[in-house]
């Protein structure tokens, strides 16, 4: 498949729930497309409608309005079997697969391609082995799912989605419940799979840190702005990240420098900070922010405000009210700054 070909496209899409005659609209007028070879992360606060959107894309629920086309054809025109060969999913659902081997679990992903009794032919077996290799658990193929770590289980589920041979893979919070090493591993794996296996991969996540590093594109979903799509850096530098947690805008802000959300600093006191390097400046700010200090560069500081000069993490010089003190650790420094009026 041609690189960057559109796999799925939504135009003025309305999503939500239809229950008899009552209709609950979660979002309307969503426009988006997913391209092959790209990893896209769907970010949004809890309740923003991420799961509803993913379910609609997976055709587990019909759209309320607008067009949803998969490989140029309306999604409603797909049969169950065609769909199962086009969209693969990885969910957070509880499974009872502990008694299956990793190989057997991954083989379940071949069901859309196998016959009535699900017999595996040679090509099926080759595809399964390729997928196990691609996610890096070929050596665990004969182990029980129950014996795997959470990260390895998630890799097995990703391999299951791979052997479905779908151009589109949707993952619902694949890194939830994983430790930081596994989170980075899974995200790196997905990024590599998108590029190498020419898949369009969309995943919802709360792990913004990893998403910003590895995602080719971001989808920001909010109640008020709907869906905003774009290349990660375009969205960040046009300050779109601050819209993500709109209701908590008072308490948190997006740190453009470091790509993380952090609590809003209540700068009740100011200090003039002169630091040797960027790393030192960052961590001094981090420490002083906890004491509600607002750190100013020398150019912006008032003449009477205290001045902190940092040469190294072991050497701080604090000048306040005409007195100069030297500190040799953050511990000493913070005791001094805490006692300043």
């Amino acid at each position: 498949m041609e690189q960057h070909a559109t796999i799925i496209e939504g135009k003025r899409l309305g999503i939500g729930y239809r229950n008899g005659k009552s209709i609950t609209t979660v979002h309307k007028g969503l426009d988006f497309r997913l391209r092959c070879g790209e990893l896209t992360c769907l970010l949004g606060a809890n309740g923003a409608g991420k799961s509803t959107l993913l379910r609609t894309l997976a055709a587990a629920q019909p759209p309320l309005d607008g067009e949803l086309t998969l490989l140029g054809k309306p999604i409603s025109g797909y049969s169950e079997r065609e769909r199962s060969r086009t969209i693969g999913v990885v969910l957070t659902d509880k499974t009872q697969t502990g008694g299956l081997t990793v190989y057997e679990l991954v083989a379940l992903g071949r069901q859309p391609h196998t016959g009535f009794f699900g017999r595996l032919h040679r090509t099926d077996k080759e595809i399964i082995e390729h997928a196990l290799h691609a996610v890096g658990i070929l050596n665990k193929a004969r182990r029980y799912m129950a014996e795997l770590s959470d990260g390895e289980r998630q890799k097995a589920m990703i391999a299951k989605a791979l052997v479905q041979e779908c151009p589109l893979i949707l993952l619902d919070e694949p890194t939830a419940f994983l430790d930081v090493v596994s989170r980075i591993e899974i995200m790196t794996l997905l990024h590599r799979l998108a590029a190498e296996e020419k898949k369009a991969i969309l995943l919802s996540t709360h792990d913004i840190e990893q998403a910003l590093v590895l995602s080719d594109r971001l989808w920001l979903l909010t109640r008020s702005n709907g869906l905003e799509c774009g290349v990660t850096e375009d969205l960040i530098l046009s300050n779109r990240m601050d819209t993500l947690f709109e209701t908590q805008a008072e308490q948190i802000r997006f740190d453009l420098m470091h790509g993380v959300f952090s609590p809003t600093v209540e700068g009740r006191k100011s200090i003039c900070l002169k630091a040797e390097d960027e790393v030192l400046r960052h961590w001094i700010q981090n420490a002083l922010n906890r004491q509600n200090y607002f750190c100013l560069p020398p150019s912006a500081a008032q003449p009477q405000c205290p001045v902190l000069e940092a040469a190294s993490p072991r050497n701080f010089t604090l000048t306040a009210n005409g007195q100069t003190r030297t500190c040799h650790s953050f511990d000493e420094l913070l005791q001094e700054t805490a006692s300043l009026p």
Partner: peptide, 14 residues
């Protein structure tokens, strides 16, 4: 066998 994964996975497997 597909239902071992739960109904939503099974549905996705066709």
């Amino acid at each position: 066998n597909a239902l071992l994964l739960g109904p939503r996975y099974a549905e996705n497997l066709g």
